[in-house]
Amino acid sequence: MGFFFHIGRYFSMLSKVFARPEKAKMYVRQLFLEIDNLGVNSVWIVIIISIFIGGIMTIQFAHALANPLYPNELVGLGTRDTLLLEFSSTMLALIMAGKIGSNITSEIGTMRVTEQIDSLEIMGVNSASYLIFPKIVAVVFIFPFLYIMSVFFGLLGGMLTGPLVGVVTIPQYIDGIQWLFYPYYITFSIIKCLVFGFLVSSVPAYFGYYVQGGALEVGKASTKAVVNTNILILFFDLLLTRLLLT
């Protein structure tokens, strides 16, 4: 019963979130603030993580394919496809759920326990729409760009690390990146990014919006939000992979 209660209340919240805004200009200003706060501030962590993961995957693929029968170009191909299909979309979404999701839950939850949301409601403002809608749009908008950046810097990290440790040359790595490339992989992962962006923003917002108690409960809600968001990301990753890649 608890599960269905949360599902019903979640969709009830979304119906308020996507209601017609009172003042569109106010929402546009808030949207740009959220893009800067939630998206732009996440760029550096995406770059750093992607560079290191790209280098690590290159070394691991080179070790796994250490057989004279396998061409060295497979190292670049394996790194590319792993970044395109899974890491830069799904794994990055899991990481962002911890950073962005906890931020959203704690911000909205703090407003709830300090009665700021109640004050907005008294003033006739649709608090769910005003607080949550710009966050959802900002995260869904920024996720595909973070995905593209992650793929680029992941491949760059592999190209720097491979020759540095002597497992693959730069020409071999670049040939591997270009070998058997399927543009649909990017389309598939962009679709996943849009879905994951919606989950990373809306699920934590739900836990923050309905939190009750004080600062301790806000902290617990942030933990629940991250855990549940990660579970949903993995579930939809499985579902979308089954629907779009088979």
Rank of each mutant, 00 (worst) to 15 (best):
F4D: 02
F5V: 12
I7W: 11
A19L: 06
P21Y: 01
K23E: 15
Y27Q: 15
Q30E: 15
L31A: 02
F32C: 01
L33C: 11
V43I: 15
W44P: 04
I48A: 13
I48E: 12
I49F: 12
G55W: 00
F61A: 08
F61K: 02
N72G: 11
D81P: 00
T82A: 10
L83A: 09
S88M: 07
T90G: 03
T90W: 06
L92C: 09
L94A: 09
I100K: 07
N103M: 15
R112V: 05
E115Y: 14
Q116Y: 12
Q116G: 07
L120N: 03
E121Y: 01
G124A: 06
S127G: 06
Y130G: 05
I132T: 07
P134E: 09
V151T: 01
G158A: 00
G158Q: 00
M159D: 00
L160F: 15
P163Q: 07
L164E: 08
V168S: 06
Y173M: 07
G176N: 07
I177Q: 05
P183E: 02
I186W: 08
I190L: 12
V200T: 13
S201F: 04
Y209M: 10
L216G: 13
S222L: 02
A225D: 01
N228W: 13
N230P: 01
I231C: 02
I233F: 00
L234A: 14
F236I: 11
L239E: 09
L243Q: 06
L244S: 04
L245I: 08
